[in-house]
Design a protein around this nucleic acid. Sequence first.
RNA 1: GCCCAGGUGGCGAAAUUGGUAGACGCAGGGGACUUAAAAUCCCCCGGUGGAAACACUGUGCCGGUUCGACUCCGGCCCUGGGCACCA
Length: 864
Amino acid sequence: MQYQPKNLEAAIQKVWDDNETFVAKEDDNKEKFYCLSMFPYPSGKLHMGHVRNYTIGDVISRFQRMQGKNVLQPMGWDAFGLPAENAAMQNNRAPAEWTYSNIDYMRNQLKSLGLGFDWSRELATCHPEYYRWEQWLFTQLMKKGLVYRKMSQVNWDPVDQCVLANEQVIDGKGWRSGAPVEKKDIVQWFVKITDYAEELLQDIDQLEGWPEQVKTMQKNWIGKSTGLEISFPIEGKENQFLKVYTTRPDTLMGVSYLAVAADHPVAHKASIHNEPLERFMEECTHTSTAEADIETMEKKGVDTGVRVRHPITGEIIPVWAANFVLMSYGTGAVMSVPAHDQRDYEFAKKYDLPINAVILPEGEESVDVSEAAMTEKGVLFNSGQFDGLKSNDALEAMAKVLHEQEMGEKKTNYRLRDWGVSRQRYWGCPIPAVYCPACGVMPVPEEELPVRLPEDLVPDGAGSPLAKLEEFKNCTCPQCGGRAKRETDTFDTFFESSWYYARYTSRDCTTGMLDKAAADHWLPVDQYIGGIEHAILHLLYARFFHKVMRDEGLVSTDEPFKNLLTQGMVLASSWYTEDASGKQTWYSPLDVEPEMDDKGAVIGGKLKEDGTAVQYGGIIKMSKSKNNGIDPQTLIEQYGADTLRLYIMFAAPPEQTLEWSDKGVEGCSRFINRVWRQVHSHVEAGPVAACTSSEGLGKDAKALRLKLHETLKKVSDDMGRRMTFNTAIAACMELLNDISKFNVNDDADRALMQEAIEILVLILSPMTPHMSQSLWESLGNDGLVVDVNWPDVDESALVKSEIELMVQVNGKLRGKIEVAADADKDSILAAAKADEAVQKFIEGKDLVKEIYVPGRLVNLVVKG
RNA sequence: GCCCAGGUGGCGAAAUUGGUAGACGCAGGGGACUUAAAAUCCCCCGGUGGAAACACUGUGCCGGUUCGACUCCGGCCCUGGGCACCA
């Protein structure tokens, strides 16, 4: 019987569908397990990153179900976003229509992978039944004072008259118009995530099932610091101060200038009679708003002419406007101490500003700042009354003096900024606010929700379509009944993805955002799986939303995700040619024959079609722009979903990047075929009951049964605790190698084969559910594999009479000895010293130390 | 620039708590089967020296701790992710 995955997989998927195998119901008799993979943006087709994400989730779900848990594994669509608008402009198609057809296509793709989703809970964030509840939550936050409006900067395309996302700004120019981008101030909605900064920070310690690296990134992002907020009196302006915040108050006596943002009010005022400053400020409006750009930009500045007085020494200090100071951070002004901060140092060198050293390295007499800043903490000097103080004690001392003079206060600061949620875009959730000329800004009343997004618009890239749509914009004031205007901005799409995990528990609830009982039953998510690229923003916003929902009485826990698995990206080799103008054309790795040097390193390649030489672009993330994506669909058709799933899980542990290899897929296909043939050749000889004990088995059979239960033990641990599916699969491969070498001589051997093969089929089933289901039936069993209990390890099969120990001399492996499993230390050491290979290295030398690690090794330390 | 990861054969990787470096798979080489090919099965496979036994060497680079380091510590190099409007 040949392995033909295409028909087999479709038939088994139909059985799952017909039986509603994966529809989850609340059941208090079983432990619940909520397994969630990050939902996809419906971009058109599944890519390999999706396949990886959802396969990992499905393997975990199936494993947990076989552990007897009641598993919920839902799926939905992160349906709002920019790509729909871009596609709309290109194809003159409405984003809604494009999105819905993508969803239909991708749903079928997911089904063909055999993923055990509860489709009855499917949701799409662009459905009004979904987004009405985030609108509702937002109006609650408005009433609570947790949202506000303020001016903030956006990238503005002066030609297309629209706001650009950071990724749409290429080399400072708009991606479509090519016009230099400008910064523009507009009024936008902000959510006060900073009110929860401390709790978001503290609760990270509760997240025991999160990777350490993600927790560290979140801590650093929130960026709690304690420092001083210091007021510098402005010269010639009675009672006017420039405020700065510093985490290094110990360097206060070394301040040589203050730097303010180019759009700081002080700079604005000063620019009126200062032409170079005015020019500089104008120049600063033509830079990107992205932090990475600002931080890597050449540091520039201009003297504003404004002077302040040092709050302690009274010294006159210049105020510069600088392009690296951001108005949106802290007070928009910083104190600069070139001697002890490298960026300030470079700026001071460039503009010939004084460099005053005030910190000595601990235990030293002098400090050299002729080449670079000394950024370590130490002991204060040149600091008048503070001389001799340690850096760490300076905060209290400075705070006391400044407090008395009302020139400064100790302050806790967070790097985290409030969440700007306004987007001047069409394909998003409308922000439920109304502007009345008489009554002001107010929330849309609950009974008028949802504010529906019209779904038939086709954006043209010039401005926001909603802002141009009078029938959307015009409304009546809920308070006075007069004519009013609706908000035409939409939410940041992170808004939708911040609570979808909760909505799955009560998707059909029409009376509230969540059904409390259902939400309490399933939440928190037991296992969340998604890309490492979401380590900060998405996960932080979702944690924040959860706390907000908790404070609204909607959920009962502090945190949404108990365990987190951050999966690595999927990479493939990349190939390109470059024309005279430097324009690159990228080719699919499937179309290229690589060429290697003697050492096997890739040096180039040729197109399979016509032999054109192409250059190697390295192994990089699969992406449309580099044309190195591998379409999962063709692989499913060629090898079947089980082979693709097995390869994805075998090629690397889940957190690591995964490099695509078509040869590797073939290897997995070979393995599946070997399992298939092994089962069928065993079954051909007729039915047999599985072996249940090692008693009475011959030597080889005993050894195979040992291997079988060792493998079961390892695979259970790898899949349940370690989540290293690659090593679990490797163990299954080893087991199959042993099974196929085993000679069946009698009925007892056949019974052992039955046991071994049944266990192999079961433990592979999370990865290869279709194959396992089919083989399970061939082995004479009824029912669904997914409802079978995970097999138990027979501990008695694991008992060994003899063990092998390594013998080292001075830490180098010199021999191996076979000893009884219960041998004592002295006899083991004696055996080690008696070993012929070991003898050569200890003969005639002084034995100075003997180390015995039970079950592992002996190390003999000799001298001379 | 800042924050966080990663770096082990020709390649993907393994070594779980400091204790046999390279399991498993891919590629490659040799053989069996076949008229032949594919498929399948068996053997070899880090480097250097050696007929072999075996020895030396080897986990990005430099240094340290230890009886013993891929694993711990300090410094550096390279690659990747994130940096608040891609999702």
